[in-house]
């Protein structure tokens, strides 16, 4: 499968030490990759290289021709000084018709708050509006940088559930930085554990048993993931049934 976006051996220097060292990452169609790692491990830098914000000091980043990406940024506070409604924000620099806006708003359950001011939205609503904006571009790949960071636990659960639904319905690929690994285990197909270099990567339950992962995150995280592994199996099964259905029709 041709990757949508890929990094080959990229190195990014900050001063004298390497923020990223020989990192390679390939995101294919219908991928769901979660990047984990301690603070300052270079996760955001990796995303920014892939998005083309800055070129790596060495290595290459390749994007599929005409790739449409949607970006959902890390937490931010909408400034009260800027009087802009959520609806207007969605259509800034976008030639999106009312129907497209309504559809994206519907998918992300923000239809009721579109006419509120951006700064008046709750954290959860703001995050969903950002997701709606990303979806308006009809992306093949969603890049999310700790999208649920400032939500409470139920807000996080709801957000990841929503993301799962969108993945299911739209078939978009996901590349996400997240600390909430235990919450995204079920949908994540591949975990990349980053600490300046790729420590380990693979399916969530494999990574959870990897000594490198345990060294970085400790036993507790690994055990927590093992607990959620059960949930993962469950969802996997359902996904399997659906896949069989598809095969039956074919």
């Amino acid at each position: 499968m041709k990757p949508l976006i890929s990094a080959h051996n990229i190195t990014v220097m900050r001063g004298r030490h390497a923020l990223l060292q020989n990192v390679s990452l390939h995101v294919g169609e219908r991928d769901f990759i979660t990047v984990v790692g301690p603070n300052g491990a270079g996760k955001s830098t990796l995303l920014k290289c892939l998005l083309g914000f800055h070129a790596p000091d060495s290595g290459t980043v390749a994007r599929a021709d005409g790739l449409k990406t949607g970006y959902v940024p890390q937490r931010f506070t909408a400034d009260r000084a800027i009087p802009i409604s959520a609806r207007r924000f969605l259509t800034l620099r976008r030639k999106a018709g009312d129907a497209a806006v309504a559809r994206a708003a519907d998918e992300t359950a923000v239809g009721d708050v579109l006419d509120k001011m951006l700064y008046a939205l709750s954290d959860g609503e703001l995050q969903r509006v950002l997701l709606a904006r990303a979806l308006l571009g009809d992306p093949q790949l969603l890049v999310l940088d700790e999208p649920a960071q400032n939500l409470d636990i139920s807000g996080q659960l709801a957000f990841y559930k929503l993301l799962e639904k969108i993945v299911r319905e739209r078939g978009v690929s996901i590349l996400m930085v997240s600390h909430d690994l235990h919450l995204v285990m079920a949908s994540t197909r591949r975990v990349v554990c980053l600490f300046h270099h790729v420590c380990c990567s693979g399916e969530p339950h494999e990574v959870a048993q990897d000594p490198d992962f345990i060294a970085l995150f400790g036993d507790d995280m690994a055990r927590m993931m093992a607990v959620y592994h059960h949930v993962h199996d469950h969802v996997h099964e359902r996904a399997g049934v659906r896949a069989d259905d598809g095969a039956g029709h074919a």
Partner: peptide
């Protein structure tokens, strides 16, 4: 106007969208 406004709301978002 729109690019500047978007950048003012969120610089990285604007950048990711090609501003």
């Amino acid at each position: 106007w729109q690019a500047l406004t978007l950048m003012t709301i969120h610089e990285d978002l604007a950048r990711a969208e090609g501003v």
